[in-house]
Nucleic acid binder design. Structure first.
Lengths: 229, 229
DNA sequence: TAGCGTTGTAAGCGCGTGCTTACACCAGGG
DNA sequence: CCCTGGTGTAAGCACGCGCTTACAACGCTA
């Protein structure tokens, strides 16, 4: 059913027409664009890139499908645009030592609340098999995350360790969002978080192979900011 | 390029025709079936289910595409058949306490050697976004692995822990095989194996929340069977 | 040899896809 | 009024897809 088909036509005679980011004007290019983007995110997340059709997306957005090509050029470009939005914000606004936990909680929170959520991870995971824009985006984004994470470790293979941690994130998301394996899919984020952070505590530091003479257990005193009592 | 187009027509007058799994006889239903299965595995692994076409598969197998439907009925049934082959053998022939490490090494060995390898994991990962036969198969297989792994732990959430471990396997495979993120994709299996097994050592046992009175720090002494010196 | 079931093949059907085109609507300016 | 440019729309094009059909080639038995 159409979820946004009736709040479109509204008279602007009461307010100032100068508000450029305002709610839907009768012929609002920017609003249409964002509606298409949002609908595309939902459809890509549900069906994956190949199975999603531009007619589906246009129908969900309540626009003519030709507009999709006017605004984005092609279906593939639409996917790229969808994946590009909101990717790096977390990276910029989170201190590195809390980055992994924040990303993990984001992954864990993604599946439950469908309304409002962008479900970007689902788009990645469901489109990663084809489209070859998804793997590239995931690789690029993952490399930035891994680089930030690798700075936490003084090990020479810090990047590898960080990527292993990122791989776990993706795998958990895969199992929960796409595969839906129980009890993982319905498990409490807190419980998963605790298990994963505990297991990775050594990996993201230097506990393994302290070959360069650093104190092997020295980082244990420098505890990560953990909210559990 | 056709890799198997010339060794098909061979006279069987020299050998015994009773060998049922033998090389290609002129009109060999079983051989054709296996050729289709093998080609389908390769194409599904490379392109994913949706992007793979039966014409591709038929071409790679060197058969007419109508034969695919005669032998398997539909493209989806072909995928199911491809995924079904060889899934549980490892589960049956590996003792549980070595199961995870064996599966991990299988995942790590899958990407490099393309010729000969079945690349079953790549089929799973690339087809998991759509086709909805892949998620079901992965879920079913994963549940059996997790159940076997859960028996190793006396914790009441052993299944959850096992599934978290399986999720890491899938995630690592995703990053290596599909995304191809460096340095993870080219890292030595031994190195990854060491990191992962070390990190998961506590998860698959009872270190977390030793509420039932087991020794909390006992895992340092109770070492896992590790091949590293 | 003819008959018959199995295996392989050429051709194409129907359909849904991404994408395009031609055109209607709506504003602002002369 | 017409013109211009931005926005929305209906219709359809060309193509590749999964799948089907009619038929030829072959191996076997009699």
């Amino acid at each position: 059913m159409d979820t946004s088909g009736e709040t479109r036509r509204q008279d602007r005679s009461d307010g100032s027409p100068a508000s450029e980011e305002a709610a839907h004007r009768p012929r609002d290019a920017r609003g249409t664009r964002t509606r298409i983007l949002h609908a595309a995110g939902a459809v890509f997340a549900e069906r994956g890139y190949e199975a999603a059709t531009v007619r589906d997306i246009a129908g969900r957005a309540g626009v003519n499908q030709a507009l999709i090509f006017r605004y984005f050029g092609s279906k593939k470009a639409l996917l790229t645009e969808v994946m590009a939005q909101g990717g790096k914000e977390q990276l910029l606004h989170t201190p590195p030592d809390r980055l992994f936990e924040t990303a993990l909680r984001g992954v864990l929170a993604e599946d439950g609340g469908e309304p409002g959520s962008d479900r970007l991870l689902a788009v990645y995971l469901r489109s990663i098999g084809s489209a070859d824009a998804a793997p590239e985006t995931v690789r690029a984004l993952g490399e930035e995350y891994a680089a930030a994470l690798a700075a936490l470790s003084s090990a020479d293979d810090g990047t590898l360790r960080a990527q292993l941690a990122m791989a776990w994130l993706l795998g958990i998301g895969l199992m929960r969002v796409v595969v839906g394996q129980e009890p993982l899919a319905s498990a409490e984020p807190e419980e998963i978080c605790r298990h994963v952070l505990t297991a990775l505590d050594g990996l993201l530091r230097d506990e393994v192979l302290p070959r360069d003479g650093r104190a092997p257990a020295g980082r244990a005193a420098k505890r990560r900011p953990d909210e559990r009592p």
